[in-house]
Amino acid sequence: LTVEVTLDGRRIELHGLSEEAHEILRHALERNADDKEIKKILEELRK
């Protein structure tokens, strides 16, 4: 799955996400998580 997010003013596409990762990010974006929170989530998903 692919998600497009804006971090530090740049639009980035995240490819190859699992369903779980996609859901976690989608929920964070829906509640307008800040860049710091999104980065933390991405860091966790990379593990």
Score class of each variant (00 low, 15 high):
residue 1 L to P: 04
residue 1 L to D: 05
residue 1 L to W: 14
residue 2 T to S: 11
residue 3 V to K: 02
residue 3 V to Y: 09
residue 4 E to L: 14
residue 4 E to A: 12
residue 4 E to R: 05
residue 4 E to Y: 13
residue 4 E to N: 07
residue 5 V to I: 15
residue 5 V to P: 02
residue 6 T to F: 14
residue 6 T to K: 04
residue 6 T to Y: 13
residue 7 L to Y: 04
residue 7 L to S: 03
residue 7 L to K: 02
residue 7 L to M: 09
residue 7 L to T: 03
residue 8 D to T: 02
residue 8 D to C: 14
residue 9 G to D: 06
residue 9 G to I: 02
residue 9 G to H: 03
residue 10 R to T: 13
residue 10 R to E: 15
residue 11 R to T: 14
residue 11 R to F: 10
residue 11 R to L: 14
residue 11 R to C: 12
residue 12 I to K: 03
residue 12 I to S: 02
residue 12 I to F: 11
residue 12 I to P: 03
residue 13 E to M: 11
residue 13 E to H: 11
residue 13 E to C: 12
residue 13 E to K: 13
residue 13 E to S: 10
residue 14 L to E: 02
residue 15 H to F: 10
residue 15 H to Y: 11
residue 15 H to M: 10
residue 15 H to R: 11
residue 16 G to Y: 07
residue 16 G to A: 05
residue 16 G to Q: 06
residue 17 L to R: 00
residue 17 L to E: 01
residue 17 L to V: 04
residue 17 L to A: 01
residue 18 S to N: 07
residue 18 S to G: 05
residue 19 E to Q: 14
residue 19 E to F: 14
residue 20 E to Y: 13
residue 20 E to S: 11
residue 20 E to I: 11
residue 20 E to G: 08
residue 21 A to R: 02
residue 21 A to T: 05
residue 21 A to G: 07
residue 22 H to Q: 11
residue 22 H to L: 15
residue 22 H to Y: 15
residue 22 H to D: 04
residue 22 H to S: 11
residue 22 H to P: 01
residue 23 E to N: 13
residue 23 E to S: 13
residue 23 E to K: 13
residue 23 E to D: 07
residue 23 E to Q: 12
residue 24 I to H: 05
residue 24 I to G: 02
residue 25 L to K: 00
residue 26 R to H: 06
residue 26 R to S: 10
residue 27 H to R: 15
residue 27 H to N: 12
residue 27 H to D: 14
residue 27 H to E: 15
residue 28 A to Q: 01
residue 28 A to M: 09
residue 29 L to H: 03
residue 29 L to I: 14
residue 29 L to S: 03
residue 29 L to F: 07
residue 29 L to Q: 06
residue 29 L to M: 11
residue 30 E to F: 07
residue 30 E to L: 11
residue 30 E to Y: 06
residue 30 E to T: 05
residue 30 E to Q: 10
residue 31 R to W: 05
residue 31 R to D: 05
residue 31 R to V: 06
residue 31 R to P: 01
residue 32 N to L: 08
residue 32 N to P: 04
residue 32 N to T: 05
residue 32 N to C: 07
residue 33 A to L: 10
residue 33 A to Q: 04
residue 33 A to N: 03
residue 34 D to H: 07
residue 34 D to V: 05
residue 34 D to N: 12
residue 34 D to G: 13
residue 35 D to Y: 07
residue 35 D to L: 07
residue 36 K to V: 14
residue 36 K to P: 06
residue 36 K to R: 12
residue 36 K to W: 11
residue 37 E to P: 00
residue 37 E to N: 03
residue 38 I to C: 05
residue 38 I to A: 01
residue 38 I to K: 01
residue 39 K to R: 13
residue 39 K to A: 09
residue 39 K to E: 09
residue 40 K to S: 12
residue 40 K to I: 10
residue 40 K to L: 13
residue 41 I to H: 01
residue 41 I to N: 00
residue 41 I to E: 00
residue 41 I to W: 03
residue 42 L to Y: 04
residue 42 L to P: 00
residue 43 E to D: 12
residue 43 E to P: 00
residue 44 E to D: 11
residue 44 E to S: 09
residue 44 E to M: 10
residue 44 E to Q: 11
residue 45 L to Q: 02
residue 45 L to Y: 06
residue 46 R to H: 13
residue 47 K to H: 15
residue 47 K to A: 14
residue 47 K to Y: 15
residue 47 K to T: 13
